[in-house]
Amino acid sequence: MILNIISILFFTAILYFSSSPLVFYLLNGLSICLILLGLFFFLGTSIGVIRFPDFYTRMHAAGKGDTLSSILILFGIALFVLNTGTLSIGLVLVCIKILLIINFIFIGSPTATHAIMDAGYGTEVKHWTNDSEGIKKKK
């Protein structure tokens, strides 16, 4: 959370003090990289949700991958927004809003995953072992 704010401030400062096109391209490239990375993790999450054998592992894939990828994508978008046009208070404000969204996802998503896992554990959903029946049938 703090890291986010510091980094955004850092990039804002860079944009504020330098007006060379190189910085512009660099930041754009960075945001593209972040979004692509996020999409990659999203892909991993989706594959995990479909392919993993039981409830707990699926939730693991969904919880972790989803959180990380959305944070990465949102961060990329924040940088992208910062980089459009001339720097103004309005743009920084939008960035801060996106940062807040990141924070809430960071708190909310793992908690939700935890709650669902907990509920699953409470209602005694069986977890996967090497010799689980469902897997054998599939083979």
Partner: peptide, 15 residues
């Protein structure tokens, strides 16, 4: 029972 959920909600609700 879950401490995690309570704390997280406590953090989210004011915001």
């Amino acid at each position: 029972e879950s401490l995690i959920i309570r704390k997280a909600c406590g953090l989210m609700v004011p915001f």
